[in-house]
Design a protein around this nucleic acid. Structure first.
Lengths: 185, 185
DNA sequence: CTCCTATTAGAAGACTTATTCTAGAATATA
DNA sequence: TATATTCTAGAATAAGTCTTCTAATAGGAG
């Protein structure tokens, strides 16, 4: 029934990621300059700056979690390495979204002006990921911190060390070797 | 000859770290509220917000590099693990300074208003650390990226995963195991 | 004691950035 | 075509922050 938008949500998210990468923070005017979207449109579609950031982050994290959950769901020690490798692989396939996850701090998208619906989704997404990690740790009987380092923090650090450039293939080997070192005592 | 300052530089740096930790960013008014230092004093002593951040970061990084350089200077593969362990150890001994290194982004202290002297010091500090790492990589004949991950990025990620709490002792074991996994093929 | 200098003080101003508001344009359906 | 609904537009406003400026304070040297 209504008019259709000039710019897809995806193109907006990509622009947000580019701004975050280049300037370290996002301003509404900066997004307007980069995309051509007017201030009014931005506020109509996202409600506030925090709403925009939350929508962007949620889009990125849910794309990532599609891969991540598929890998960690029910995994044992041998198959868990795929969850650690999900990070560099995602980073290669969806660079723009990965940049958002790597560059965006929690306080940027989670605050008083974050729409309630987005706040709930964020809490849900975080809790679900934490639960999967806890379940994995107890399934393989290893300390939670070691699992978190092997599957989350270390792969993220490896990828961050390469951004904004490409993620070279040997990174996967490094991630896998650390996984083994951390989780097979 | 002159009047002496009411607050030591160290206490200011600690307050900056606390603000960064709690709010994710530093405002001049926030620092005033936390320390009691007046706006005039802050600008007299540091010139600008970026100057303050640069002074804080330089104090933190040079304290850290005392430890780090002592460990990596001339180290072979066996002794290099001490350089990787310098990060968690520093974090335990000088929490306030470590927090600054962990929470402060480059763009916060390096910009147009950073005093020229500070800019040069920052460049020097970075170049010196990079040179030590390159020298180590060629000395032990391993890829630079692997060395950087083992000695810098991985320990930092492990420590970040624990902050703002304590760094548990088992972190050292994790860091050391990854070091071995990454650098002994 | 008097002068000199570094430091402190905080109000006023400038600047950046987020948000609101009113008007207008586009499109699907009836 | 009329109409309802969504989207676009951007100037005006509001809020928050950094920076400048003038005046006052404290302590050592002559």
């Amino acid at each position: 029934m209504p008019r259709k938008a000039n710019f897809s949500d995806e193109s907006v998210y990509a622009a947000v990621g580019a701004e975050l990468m280049e300037r370290g923070t996002l301003t509404v005017d900066g997004l307007k300059a980069r995309t051509g979207l007017s201030i009014g449109s931005i506020y109509h579609r996202f409600g506030s700056r925090e709403g925009l950031m939350a929508a962007t982050w949620l889009a990125a994290v849910s794309a990532f979690q599609d891969d991540f959950h598929a890998a960690i769901e029910g995994a044992d020690l041998d198959r868990g390495v795929a969850a650690a490798l999900a990070t560099p692989r995602f980073c290669r396939r969806k660079r723009a979204l990965a940049v958002i996850l790597a560059c965006c701090r929690r306080s940027e998208f989670l605050g008083a002006k974050t729409p309630a619906a987005a706040q709930e989704k964020i809490a849900g997404v975080n809790e679900r990921a934490a639960a999967r990690l806890r379940a994995f740790a107890s399934r393989v009987d290893r300390p939670l911190l070691a699992c978190r380092l092997a599957i989350v923090d270390l792969p993220v650090a490896a990828v961050r060390a390469c951004l904004p450039g490409d993620i070279p293939p040997e990174v996967d080997g490094y991630v896998a070797r650390c996984y083994t070192a951390l989780l097979t005592a």
